[in-house]
């Protein structure tokens, strides 16, 4: 059974005049790393909110179809109940941090779920270790840089021990190095710890290499779903204005001139490598 399953799901926010999601069907299995992308306003954030029950329990509206998280229908489950299965990280960490120091921030979630104190303490230490937060332990979130805040926000979410990490443009406010660090942490959680990841991101040049799959959305619908090399080299991806990695764009332009590389490159290094290979052939 899929960990996350959208079954012909549609949603319209209360007061809105068009559907935010139109008959979305997709399933995400354990251990996958799925990147969701598409033009602004296409329904990416709504899809994230759907995965942890914020839609329809907090953001109200009209629904059709179903969403199943680890077998539970989100219509019947509360946000609190889903929180231990799906952890959501927002774009702006300041919207998510609520306490006065990092230890308290990490403990806040599990305490609220009624986890026993010894276990809470253990999880806090694990997360501090995992995300390299030791030097921030006693710091107030407002004294931290944006990148540090986002690491803490992600830590607070991971402290709930979710089965799926859903992150909605978690690096868009960060400088490039901090963004890389956060994205590396996410890739490692997936690779080493087998964490299932659903990530919304525009900057595909940074994430395509780590993702196992890309879902492309437009106007509330899924219009492509497959492995990154396939989806990013489809014409539809450039037509709707997705940020195709530059290396992939070079590949497409060369192909149009009759120059074939042996596969679709996703990074600059890979492009150089494939060109070297083609030259030797």
């Amino acid at each position: 059974m899929a960990l996350v399953e959208f079954a012909d799901f549609s949603f319209k926010y209360l007061g809105a005049d068009s559907l935010a999601l139109r008959k979305v069907s997709a399933s995400v299995n354990e251990g996958e790393y799925v990147v969701i992308t598409g033009p602004s306003g296409c329904g990416k954030t709504t899809l994230c909110r759907t995965a942890n029950g914020l839609v329809p329990h907090f953001h109200r509206g009209y629904i059709a179809g179903n969403v199943f998280i680890d077998g539970q229908n989100t219509r019947d489950a509360t946000v609190a109940k889903l929180a231990s299965t799906v952890g959501l990280v927002f774009q702006n960490p300041a919207n998510q941090l609520v306490t006065l120091n990092v230890e308290k921030e990490l403990a806040f979630g599990p305490e609220n779920l009624g986890v026993v104190p010894e276990e809470v303490r253990q999880r806090v230490e694990e997360i501090i270790d995992l995300l390299n937060l030791e030097h921030l332990r006693e710091k107030h979130p407002h004294e931290m840089s944006g990148g540090e805040q986002q690491r803490v926000a992600m830590g607070a979410t991971l402290a709930l021990k979710p089965k799926v990490l859903v992150a909605d443009e978690p690096t868009s406010n960060l400088d490039p190095r901090s963004a890389e660090l956060i994205l590396d942490i996410i890739a490692n959680l997936n690779k080493r710890n087998g964490m299932t990841v659903i990530l919304v991101e525009h900057r595909l040049d940074l994430v395509a290499k780590d993702a196992s799959r890309i879902i492309l959305m437009d106007k509330g619908q899924i219009i492509a779903d497959g492995i990154p090399r396939d989806v990013l080299s489809m014409d539809i991806s450039s037509e709707i204005g997705v940020g195709i990695p530059k290396a992939t764009q070079v590949y497409k332009r060369l192909q149009a001139k009759g120059i074939e590389l042996s596969r679709v490159p996703l990074t600059g290094e890979e492009l150089a490598l494939l060109v070297g290979e083609a030259k030797r052939r």
């Binding site: 400088d175 040049d205 764009q249 070079v250 332009r253 600059g268 150089a272 060109v275 070297g276 030259k279």
Partner: peptide, 28 residues
């Protein structure tokens, strides 16, 4: 805390194997 854009990374990597490629190319 800036990182090189993908095109520059590609240009530099190409320059190593093919010195005739300038490592400062920045446009597609």
């Amino acid at each position: 805390s800036l990182t090189l854009p993908q095109l520059t990374v590609a240009a530099r990597a190409l320059h190593k194997a093919f010195p005739q490629v300038s490592e400062r190319l920045t446009l597609l």
